[in-house]
Design a protein around this nucleic acid. Structure first.
Lengths: 236, 236
DNA sequence: TCCAGGGCATAACGCCGTTCTCGTTTTCGG
DNA sequence: CCGAAAACGAGAACGGCGTTATGCCCTGGA
């Protein structure tokens, strides 16, 4: 998938001969065409996935909506799994970029971390309220897939989550530098644990709906943040 | 499905005539037979589900392994979904009973809560180490289904989780009575949030495997407990 | 003995992911 | 502009799986 797979092994100086340029340009034009087609599949899938009865869309539907053919689909994706993976990676990337923008407005340290947690919670939480871009909203619908990916293909999952993990790790690092975070916690792991706690608590808000009921996403987000920050122990 | 659907609408005194007794006895015997058959299906499914390549077993396999027929299967279950639901309910029930036993040995309050959290983490965490009864171990393999259930059928999910939620709520209540828990947290919700945090962090340990790697389930359990209890904020 | 119901085996149906075939269109070097 | 090669579209076909339907056997009670 990478652009620079020209040299198949041999170490070679960066001779930019006209010949190579021509080849590269030819390959490039083919590649942009291919990428355009792939993108049409991805767009169609995104439309389907956050279209009310999403998530369990069929390959046929993607093909029809994208105005292409089944043959093309299997020429670009080895299967539905790979499409979902690409979708998920895009959603994670878009989400982390979105978070990056939103969070930049807060001052580094605890306020930024707070905003980060609450905003991510709101993105993951299902509900009609969502003016986020479609690609970001798609993340919501992929909770189930995320779970499956995390358990069945940990390697791929970890790769897909990299943008979000690094973002959280960075923001956590800023907060730690500001002296707001306990210094005895394992850095890298904390980001993952916090991310998971937010995601899955937002995805499934109803595990204790027999005891408590809530429709206030903002309040739930704050409560989760409070729990993550302060823990449940009574201060001594 | 219920046994007492004898009176189809009319209000009737509890006349225990011999006629009704006979009918009841006949129905009872039919019911125990039915329950035996259902149990055979469930047992077969449990065997399959924690048999290495579990989770995605087929209805045919369940039927074959149980030595019964497809027809019988669809006579007792409306579909595969219902089988999974029954399996899940059993797993939750068995797990909460198991936890109840283990936890009874600890003194009420924080120690019991700690044990509860750590033990539940170990049950949910995948891995070769598991001398827990089969029914309990089955819970591990149903992480994906739990997620699906939580998002697509919140009502059923909440019902299925009741035993675990009430157990955790009780233990949390004991700890709160002992003065170890912040009194300003919403009681019922806390149980659900804690349960979810443990479950999904145990199910998917690898979200940040690009940063940190760990094979020590006990240490991870303690770390999660520490985070839940004390939060990530530096003590003032 | 008879017969009705429960149960088994198996075929069949529909959905869906995936593969294959065939005929057409597009691309690209010369 | 041409011709070969690659890409593409439309749709049939295959296989797995959940679900339903059919036909036969075996048992148990009148």
């Amino acid at each position: 998938m990478s652009a620079d797979d020209a040299a198949p092994g041999q170490p070679r100086a960066e001779v930019t001969s006209w010949r190579e340029l021509a080849v590269a340009r030819s390959l490039d034009s083919a590649r942009v065409r291919a990428e355009k087609r792939v993108q049409r599949f991805l767009d169609a899938a995104v439309e389907l996935i956050n279209s009310e009865r999403g998530r369990d869309f069929t390959v046929q539907e993607v093909v029809e909506r994208s105005g292409q053919s089944l043959r093309s689909f299997y020429q670009y994706f080895t299967g539905k799994h790979e499409l979902l993976l690409a979708l998920f990676e895009d959603a994670v990337r878009a989400t982390s970029e979105h978070l990056e923008e939103v969070v930049a407005a807060e001052e580094p340290g605890l306020p930024r971390l707070h905003r980060c947690v609450v905003e991510y919670y709101k993105i993951c939480r299902p509900g009609p309220k969502g003016q986020a871009p479609e690609t970001v909203a798609a993340l919501r619908a992929m909770g189930e897939f995320a779970q499956q990916l995390l358990t069945e293909h940990p390697k791929e999952a970890a790769t897909a989550f990299v943008p979000l993990v690094t973002l959280f790790d960075r923001v956590l690092g800023e907060a730690a530098d500001a002296g707001a975070i306990r210094p005895d916690l394992t850095r890298g792991r904390l980001a993952g644990v916090v991310l998971q706690a937010i995601m899955f608590n937002a995805f499934a808000t109803t595990i204790s709906s027999t005891l408590v009921r809530s429709d206030d996403a903002a309040a739930d987000a704050e409560e989760l943040w409070d729990l993550l920050l302060n823990g449940m122990a009574r201060r001594s």
